[in-house]
Write a protein that binds this DNA or RNA. Sequence first.
RNA 1: GCCUCGGUAGCUCAAUUGGCAGAGCAGCUGACUCUUAAUCAGCGGGUUGCAGGUUCAAGUCCUGCCCGGGGCACCA
Length: 519
Amino acid sequence: MSDSPHLLFDPAHLTDQEQARLQNLQALIAAGIDPYPARVQRTHTIAQARALYESNPPLEAATYGPVVTVTGRLKAFRNMGKVSFADLEDGTGQMQIVVRRDQLPDNWYNDIWKKSIDLGDFLGFSGPLFVTKTGELSVEAHSVQFLSKTLKPMPDKWHGVRDQEKRYRRRYVDLIGNPEVRDLFRTRAAIVRALREYLDNEGFLEVETPILQPVYGGAAARPFVTHHNQLHQDLYLRISFELYLKRLIVGGFDKVYEIGRDFRNEGVSFKHNPEFTQLEFYEAYADYNDVMNRTEQMIAYVAQKVLGTLTLQWQEHTVDLTPPWRRISLRQAILDATDIDYEAFPDAESLSNEMKRMRIDHDPRQPWGKLVDKLMSTFVEPNLIQPTFLVDYPRDVSPLAKGSPTDPRQVERFEGFLAGMELCNAFSEINDPIDQLQRFIDESYHATQGDEDAHPVDEDYIDALSFGMPPTGGFGIGVDRLTMLLTGKDTIREVLLFPHLRSVKEEAEEEVAPESSSQ
RNA sequence: GCCUCGGUAGCUCAAUUGGCAGAGCAGCUGACUCUUAAUCAGCGGGUUGCAGGUUCAAGUCCUGCCCGGGGCACCA
């Protein structure tokens, strides 16, 4: 077809249903109807129309109420001959429309309504509100606006879209067909709003810091690398906000937070996406105990605000968020779960040997801290169903956390767990620039030893600390995971509108086969 | 990267031991002035993810590849 702008709308490539819709589009144009008009006449959203009828009911039953013009997507229709019932949906709800042949001009009902309008089209209907004999509040259509033509068939009206790949690749279709998915993302927005509300009410300042960073840091992860052409400069997409937010504490903002996207070049799983939403806050004149208290309060506030309860169901578990949460040292938790006291095996070799003796599968080349983390994540984390803080971590897995005043091998750090999943990470921040530099150097040493997640040295950050930072408590939480927990979802993809998926390879591309860069 | 399970009509799903690829919704044609998963009659719609192989015969068995789910590894 030479008149098709693109193969996408070449009838030879369309299904029977798509061809029928394209023909209906042309029929509308032939009838002098603009299928994509620029203006909409609307007096009420569907929710407003319902409220209007509630507050202005007709004096006698079965008579007409106020006249409204409502707009929306046609979700269903039931054609009874000379009258049709249609379900119209906008962002606020659904309304039944009663379309009578004799209320519409000329042959509009037979020629346009019955022939050229498809499920999914956007329409506006003007007429009085009334309640049908079967009790359904409806608008009787006295005039109709055509608003937008739909060229693809709608998802199954009863089952929606179930196929996960289809749902994630074409989330818009998922959202059209599955109202509960729309509800879930409204809940997600409410969670983020409640987090902001809590922190704003507590006097925190919301800030925005660079996503493109010359030196990445603040977490143990591999970064994405990009390049600024004009400046001839490699830049990293941030893996955390931490080092920038603490520069702001140096600058005199005592309480700051940021909610935004982090990027980590790691594997994808039910709880990992390459980009994810993080909340971090930093509070001057506080330590990790203060942060622990605040964490309980904040999560409980959000749950109460969004769910109206502190008891939530996550998969087969019932979780009670009521503060205070259980607190146990990491050392004790691992000791309870494995009978290994990692303090008794203070280097990688002895700990690895002990793990080998207990037939615990691990990589013996890993540094000591990684082995401790392995014990924690394998034997402790899955059993932390009720909210729990693991406190006091080994110094060498925590390069930004302040050392314990009583035990030089420990730092003042905790992680929060819920439903067997790590939720947040926090500590008393190192504010001694010389100590921090030494930790960075130790990390760089690890980097030369093959630990790819180790921190590079951020000399500008050391410079910032050298101007003086008050004792400060810091905190980070994965907002996606928090959303999973509060909505009962067992995969992060369900709480991300557009989760990362491998791109589908086009057949035409395969012949080109460009050399891929080294991994 | 490795292991494992899956991919059938626009959507949701069937297809017994290898034996004519089906249903509901949606679509098309028609009937119907209170339906709401409307109903009734009729009709069309398939490269069974892709490419090979075995076989008289492949959705089904074998090999490779693509995409997805789950697990491992890595990580938060």
